[in-house]
Design a protein around this nucleic acid. Sequence first.
DNA 1: TGCCAGGCTTCAC
DNA 2: GTGAAGCATGGC
Length: 292
Amino acid sequence: MIIRTIDFFDLKQIADSGQCFRMAPLIGQEGDGFRIISRGRLLDVFQQKRTFSFHCSEEDMPYWEEYFDLKTDYGKIAASAALEDTYLQKAALFGSGIRILRQEPWEMIITFIISQQKTIPKIKESVELLSRTYGKKLSCAGHTFYAFPSPEELSSASLDELLSLKLGYRAKYIYHICQDAISGRLDLHSLSSMDYFQAMDYLTGFYGIGRKVADCICLFGLHHINAFPIDTWIQKILLREYYQPLYEAIPKKHLYQKIVRDHFSCYEGFAGVMQQYIFYYERYSSSHHSLL
DNA sequence: TGCCAGGCTTCAC
DNA sequence: GTGAAGCATGGC
């Protein structure tokens, strides 16, 4: 077990920020604990204020430091919220323990294709079911768990099998992109070497991936933290907090991107972190108690 | 029952 | 190019 003191790092905030669907709370332990599955690894980690206990070996620790992006100064990012933007100030303070995880691109592609028109609890269910059905069964320190299925493993699923997993109209998207991954039309290796704009062009060329899903893949899977996904929650925030009469003339299709340009381009290079702050703050505020 | 959910594709105009 | 309809499934 490895003990570390880390600032601007809060497991529960990250778990509730909607970027990761394989963080499960561990009950009956001291502090906030979570079990995390990533790239075929399992980690139990506990938090008491600024103190963290990572249940892993020394040689595995660099992987998790990278995964949690612990070398980036999120205090500096949270403090960079514009003074006149009182809403963002509140959101950044409230969610200052959020970090942008470095998750596997393939897992993010499938996960965020699934995410469309689903609630976060239902996304978690689908990801877990896909992993149990097609992923490798592994064990670590006496715990068995299922890795997220590789392109090869997931491509063994027929369209009918995917439909039986309650994926609805997303099943054909997943089936299609698995075939693309096997054929080489989707090249995950070259995707990882693209910059943000190249990756957006590339990803939106695939069936079932639009702008919002591509932005989520860029932000959470490729660590292009300038990406600013605009979903229904963000749209609601933008209209309520940042709308100006001059926007009346903007076509609806480009309205939200325009508002983001006007109010968030000053955070060039890390706007996606600001996006996470307001997303988390909005969802927490609207639930008042627990995040579903 | 009707509406919405971390949207996307298709199809009129 | 823009906007609306249709899409699966489940929860409130």
